Each structure stands twice: as structure tokens, then as C-alpha cells.
Amino acid sequence: MLLPIVVGVDGSESSLGAIDWAADEAALHGLPLRLVHACLWERYEGPAFTEAAGVASERLLARAIIDRATERARQGHPEVQIDADIVPEDAEAALLREARRATAVVTGCRGRGPITGALLGSVSRSLATRAPCTVVVVRGRQKNRQAANGPIVVGVDDPTSSTAAIRFAFHEAQARRSVLDAVRAWRRPAHRAQAHPLLVGNPAHEHEDQAGALLDRALRDAEREHPDVPVRRVITEGPAHHVLLTHSATADLLVLGAPRRHGPLGLPLGSVAHAALHHADCPVAVVPQR
């Protein structure tokens, strides 16, 4: 059974961009697409109030949002199997539930109006932190969102926390026939012990060499599984979030790993993922690593 790509839609321009990206992704991988609009009016009002003017208008708005989303996805990819639903839940609960049986959950980076926009931001953060599947936040410039032949960029932390993200990035690069940039940032220690005068060598080179060896180790298995994917190793000194945000300017997708633990709560997002979700110039995929 093929698990769908799920998209949270709310009628905003941002969510329409998420629909476009998700429909392209579903067509690329031969997956079904599921459009979900979360609406609380039915749950809170109940059947006794369903004929009230306010409720009726909310119902019409919800139907218009999901119908427009469905039409947009079908126009771009009529071959994709599409399922659409209005669910009587808040967006966070609905999408976390959907994530349990999804290949990925896709959201925009803003909602309708300042209040909804703030809520959508919190929903995206919650999904990236807690969802058991990959979460993609579609953000950045239009050319980056349209996959205009830029590279797939994956941030490599260490082999134990980056394995799932690396595999996802290779899978995307192969499907898109893209170059994969594997990026490892390194830093000099803030306080370094005074070197002995008889010892030689450049400490900076040592840290760079260690970063390169770690990158080789992290990529080894995925490169064997995807020999046709061209890989560029990028080893750069500097804060990881600055390095990755710089590379996002020319990327079609930025892929990051996120730790998970068993149970309903995920580990907090690190500063790198937090910065990427707020400031990257391209869509960001957060891949859970257990």
C-alpha cells in the first residue's frame, strides 16, 4: 500500500504553493496525494447550530477551500490520485494524526492573516518536532520552489543522527536527476590549549580533516545504494545554520535530520532546523531519525 503525501491546506497563497509542490512530488514518485483542511466549526457548534448563518458561511468557506485545492492539484497533475477531506479538528491535531499514515506531510510557511499565520507557524514547528514521517515546509523564492534544476542540499551532522536524512536526500536527487550537495560545517574550538612548541601541524587542518572523514563515513552506504547520483562534498568552517542558509539560496530542497524518541513527544528542534524553517530560501524537509 502506497502511503500518500498529505498537504495541509487553508486557502492561503502559502498553502497553494504547498499544494503545487506536493502535487509535483506525488507525480515524481508515483504516490497518491491527500489534501486536508482542518475546520473546528462542526465540532464546536454541533448539529443544533448547523443552519446558523455563521456556521453555514464557515461550511461554505471550508468547501470552497478544499474544492479549490483539489482543482489546482488536478490541473497540474491529472494523473495523480487525489483524495480531499475536511476534518473537524484543529490543524495541529489533524496533521499529526495524518502523519501516522503518510509518506510525508507538506505545509506552507504562512496562513491566512496574521493570527492564522502565527498558528500555521506553530503547526509547522510541531509537525517538524513530533511527526513520525518527513515534514516539508514549502518556503523560499519561487524558482527554488519550482525545482529549477538546483541541487538537493543535505546537512550532515554525524552518522548516527543523519542517516535517514541522507537516504531521503539521495532518493530525491535520484528521482529529480539532481546533484546532491552534502554539507558539513565545522568550527574551531573556542578555547584551544596552548600547543607545545615542539609539536607541529595546523589545528585548523586537523578539524577540517576530521569533518571530511566524518562526511565520508556518513555518505558511504547511501553512495553505494545510489551510484548514479552525483555528490559534491562541501566542508566549510562556520556556524552550521549560516552555512546551510547560504547554500539554500541556490537549492531546490534543503534536507535536515531531526532526532526522535519513542512516545508522543519529540525532542526539541535544534537551532539549525529552527533557522532553516524560518529563513531558508528553498523548501525544507525535516526527516525524523530514530
Rank of each mutant, 00 (worst) to 15 (best):
I82A: 01
C282I: 04
R192I: 15
V80C: 01
A93L: 12
H247I: 03
S248C: 05
V153W: 00
H262G: 10
V123T: 14
G117Q: 07
A23C: 09
P239E: 14
V123H: 00
F49H: 14
R101V: 15
A56K: 15
R74D: 08
I115V: 15
G11D: 07
A218W: 07
G263M: 06
L95W: 03
L31R: 11
P259M: 11
A84H: 07
S57Q: 14
V179S: 09
D228S: 12
P268N: 03
P230I: 09
V87I: 11
A249T: 10
A148K: 08
I152P: 07
P230L: 11
A91P: 13
M1E: 06
I19F: 05
Q146V: 10
A131N: 01
E225L: 12
G257R: 02
I86C: 04
A62F: 03
E42C: 04
V287W: 00
S14D: 13
A169D: 00
V255R: 01
D221G: 06
S271Q: 12
L214M: 15
M1F: 10
A18K: 04
A276N: 05
I65C: 00
D157Y: 06
V243R: 00
A195W: 11
V255P: 01
G11L: 06
Q142K: 14
A118F: 13
L35G: 05
Q289I: 09
Q174Y: 11
P4T: 04
A94K: 03
A193Q: 10
H37T: 00
E172T: 07
R260S: 09
V153M: 02
A53L: 11
L256D: 02
L16V: 12
H226A: 10
A93K: 11
R34I: 09
L269N: 02
P197G: 04
T107N: 02
P227W: 04
L31S: 06
A38R: 00
H242I: 06
A185H: 01
R145S: 04
Q142E: 15
G111I: 03
R59P: 01
P151K: 02
A64R: 15
A128F: 07
Q210V: 11
E71Y: 05
P230G: 07
A99Q: 05
V123K: 00
A38G: 08
V136L: 01
R112F: 09
G46L: 07
L35R: 05
L214Q: 13
P259D: 13
Q174W: 10
G46A: 08
R43H: 12
D252I: 02
D20P: 04
G263R: 04
T236S: 11
V36A: 03
V137M: 12
Y44W: 14
L245E: 03
P288L: 05
